[in-house]
């Protein structure tokens, strides 16, 4: 006896033109990846890969396909792969983007798509950079709540208006897309950079925090907010849509007026 397991007929008659899951359009993508391996050569080179991708795929999917099916030595960071962890910031077609949030169909696939590591931080291998200088600046602005009052027995209350004041800068995922898009940071690694200022802003304008003055003093440095040349690269690069230059301008004004 042969058990024939035929798929049951669909209860809904779908006309052919609507199409099913297998009919997502595919297209060929020419990926040009910046490669660097200090164990092999001191010079960075370009590697070209041709992959067939679907219309729903992102640059990260193309990199996965390359790594899993063509060249396993291609190195990049990624963790959640859904725009939350901030691991896969890279320079795609000359602009800082998260590879996991950049759809291939939004790019010009008739030309090679260039993928490079973010600028201004030391490259370790291929698309992986040393994030330590970035996190060093982040730590220096004391990105944590400092409250001098007594520990409350319940939660620290805050009005909706007070919360709204720093809402934009709470969205930061520390991907470094902003800091590594900043022309000032490229040439002056001592500059705090947009991300550190954004995270300082988040606490400076928090009504529950008492160390705003201290943070303003830290950022009133030669390498602090005054290094900002308002090129707006950071605001444009932020994958969370934070108005970074606006936040930096607010910190500048708070330093001048000493009013938070």
């Amino acid at each position: 006896m042969s058990a024939e397991l035929a798929e049951p007929a669909s209860k809904i008659e779908l006309p052919a033109h609507i199409g099913g899951g297998g009919e997502i359009p595919t297209f060929d993508v020419h990926l040009r990846v910046r490669r660097y391996n200090p164990e092999v050569s001191e010079d960075a080179t370009w590697d070209d890969f041709h992959v067939t991708m679907y219309g729903t795929d992102r640059v990260l999917d193309a990199l996965h396909k390359v790594k899993w099916e063509i060249d396993g030595s291609v190195s990049f960071r990624r963790s959640c792969a859904h725009g939350v962890c901030g691991s896969d910031a890279m320079r795609i077609n000359g602009r800082n983007r998260l590879a996991c949030k950049t759809l291939l169909k939004d790019l010009d696939t008739s030309k090679p798509i260039t993928v490079e590591p973010i600028k201004g931080l030391p490259v370790e291998k291929d698309l992986i950079v040393d994030m330590e200088p970035f996190f060093q600046s982040f730590r220096e602005v004391m990105p944590f709540l400092i409250n001098k009052g007594h520990e409350p027995t319940k939660e620290r209350l805050q009005s909706a208006e007070d919360r709204e004041r720093f809402d934009d800068t709470t969205k930061c995922i520390l991907c470094a897309a902003c800091t590594s898009s900043c022309p000032v940071f490229w040439t002056d690694g001592q500059y705090f950079g947009p991300a550190a200022i954004v995270n300082a802003h988040r606490f400076i304008f928090d009504s529950r925090d008492d160390a705003g003055d201290m943070r303003l003093e830290i950022l009133n440095d030669k390498e602090g907010v005054w290094r900002c040349r308002t090129t707006f690269n950071c605001s444009e690069a932020c994958p969370r849509g934070i108005q970074v230059t606006q936040a930096i301008a607010e910190v500048k004004q708070a330093i001048l007026s000493r009013k938070i």
Partner: peptide, 20 residues
């Protein structure tokens, strides 16, 4: 650190080019 500078120019928008 790569000895050669990174491959492409950063493609900034109005803000960056006005600064340049």
């Amino acid at each position: 650190m790569p000895t050669k500078p990174a491959g492409t120019l950063y493609r900034g928008r109005e803000g960056m080019w006005s600064w340049v």
